[in-house]
Simulated scan of single mutants.
Amino acid sequence: MLADELDEFLRELGCEVVGPAAQATEAGELAGRDTDLDGALLDVNLSRGETSFGLAADLAHRKVPFVFITGYDLESSFPPEFRNAPRISKPLDLGTLVHTMLRHFAPVTRPRG
């Protein structure tokens, strides 16, 4: 339910959403289809005991910014390469989400005219 509410909120803000995805494979396929991603919101824990760390590594390699959304605030919950990655703690505060997206994701480019 949170994913659906977040999807609706982001669309109302004018974002083009390519998810949500509950499994790592599905998320990777969605992210891989779009070469112009401005950023990605990654819930650390996915279904079936999967995590989004593999997708985060792929996004980092492609230089796509991402933010983890997590209930785990301990540094030890993250692999060393992601311990300094931006993250938002649950429960999700929408104001914090918007601020974090504006800070870390690619700016929107609008045509002049």
Rank of each mutant, 00 (worst) to 15 (best):
M1N: 12
L2P: 02
L2G: 04
L2Q: 08
A3K: 04
A3R: 14
A3I: 04
D4G: 11
D4H: 11
E5I: 06
L6R: 01
D7N: 10
D7A: 06
F9V: 00
F9Q: 01
L10C: 02
L10G: 06
L10P: 06
R11F: 08
R11E: 13
E12C: 03
L13R: 14
L13I: 06
G14D: 01
G14S: 08
G14P: 05
C15W: 01
C15M: 12
E16R: 15
V17K: 01
V17Y: 06
V17M: 10
V18S: 14
G19L: 07
G19A: 06
A21H: 00
A22Q: 14
A22V: 15
Q23T: 13
E26A: 12
A27L: 04
A27E: 03
A27D: 03
L30D: 05
L30R: 14
L30N: 08
A31P: 01
G32A: 09
R33S: 11
D34F: 11
D36M: 09
D36V: 10
D36R: 15
L37W: 02
D38W: 06
G39Y: 02
A40C: 11
L41R: 00
L41M: 02
L42N: 07
L42Q: 01
V44G: 03
N45V: 05
L46K: 01
L46E: 01
L46D: 03
S47T: 07
R48Q: 09
R48A: 15
G49F: 02
E50Q: 07
F53S: 10
F53P: 01
G54V: 00
L55S: 08
A56M: 00
A57S: 10
L59E: 08
L59Y: 05
A60D: 09
H61R: 12
R62A: 15
R62V: 04
R62C: 03
K63A: 07
K63H: 07
F66H: 11
V67H: 02
I69T: 07
T70Q: 00
T70H: 03
T70E: 00
T70Y: 00
G71K: 06
G71F: 04
G71W: 07
D73P: 08
D73I: 07
L74A: 15
E75D: 10
S77C: 09
F78H: 11
F78P: 00
F78Y: 13
F78T: 05
P79K: 02
P80M: 13
P80Q: 10
F82C: 01
F82V: 03
N84I: 02
N84C: 09
N84S: 12
A85Q: 05
A85D: 05
A85F: 04
P86M: 05
P86D: 09
R87W: 04
R87N: 09
I88A: 14
S89E: 10
P91T: 06
D93V: 08
L94V: 11
T96P: 03
H99I: 15
T100M: 14
M101I: 11
L102G: 14
F105R: 06
A106T: 11
P107L: 12
T109C: 09
R110F: 08
P111V: 07
R112N: 11
R112Y: 13
R112H: 12
G113N: 03
G113I: 15
G113L: 09
